[in-house]
Amino acid sequence: MTTAAPNNAAVMVTPPLPAGRTIRLGISRIGYEVRTYFRQGDSVFFTFLFPLVFLTIFSVAFSNANFGRDAAGHVVTAADYYLPAMLAAGLLLSGLQNMAVDIAGEKSDGTLKRLGGSPLPVFSYFIGKIGQVLVTGILQAALLIVIAATAFGVSLPSDPAKWLTFAWVFLLGVTTCSVLGIALSALPRTGKSATAVIIPITLILQFISGVYLQFNILPTWLQNFAGIFPLKWLAQGMRSVFLPDSFKTLEAGHEWNLTGVLIATVIWLVVGLVLCRVTFRWIRKDS
C-alpha cells in the first residue's frame, strides 16, 4: 500500500482536541446537569424544596413559641430561628445527599460507563456536578430567604459584614458538601440502595447538628460528637448571620467561633477531595 489513500475508501483522521476544553466542557456540563436535575421530581422535592417545607412546618407549628429576644427586646420567632438551620440543611441536602444519591444512580444505570468511554475529562464532570449544586443551592437559599422574609416576617440582617459571612459560609459549605457527596457515592452498592444508605446519614446529622433540634438543648457530649462533622459548623455559621448577636451566648464557648467554622469545613473539604481522588471511578472494573 502506498501512503496515498485509495480512491474507494476514505482514510479517517481525527483532529487533535482543542486546548482548554476541560473547563469549557465543565461549564457545558453545568447547564446539562441543572436541566436534568429539575426534570427529576423526586430529587427536586427531597433536596430542593425539603428545607422550605420544614421551614413552613416549623414556622406554623411553633408560631406561639418564643425562642428568645434580641437586644432591642424583639421576640425571635420560630421562622427567625429556623431560617439559618434550614439554610444549613439546604447545603447538606443539595450538596451531599443529592450528589451521593445522584452519582450512585448514574454509576448503576450506565451513565458513568457511557461517559467513561467518551472523551469527557473526569474534571469536567466534577465541574458540572459542583456547578449544578452551586446553581441549585443559590436558588434554594434565595427562595428560603425570600419566603422567610415575605411570608414569615423574618427580618434580614442589614450589616454587609453579615452577608459577607453568609457568602463565604455558603460557598465553602456548598463546595465541601458536594465533594463529600461525590466521595460518599462510592458507598452504596447499587443505585436502588443509594437513598437507603445515604438518607440515614444525612438525617442523623441534621438531628444532632442543630437543624431540627435546638443545638443548645443537646447534651454536651452529643454537641461535641456533632462537632466532628461539618454540618454543625455550617449551621453555627448561618446562625451567626441571621440570629441576634446576643444569641452567641448559647453557643459552645459563648462565641460564634467563625474561625472554627472555617477550619472544620476546610478540613472536611480536603478529606472529601482526597476521598474523591482515591475512590472515584467511572466504572468498577471487573464487576
Partner: peptide, 28 residues
Amino acid sequence: GIVLQNTGESGNVTVHEQLSHFARYYAN
C-alpha cells in the same frame, strides 16, 4: 465510538439535547 450492550440511563434529556451535548466532546 462505543455502543454498549446495556444502557439504562434516566434519560431526562431530549434526543437532540443529548446528541448536541455529546457532540461537544469531540473535535470534529
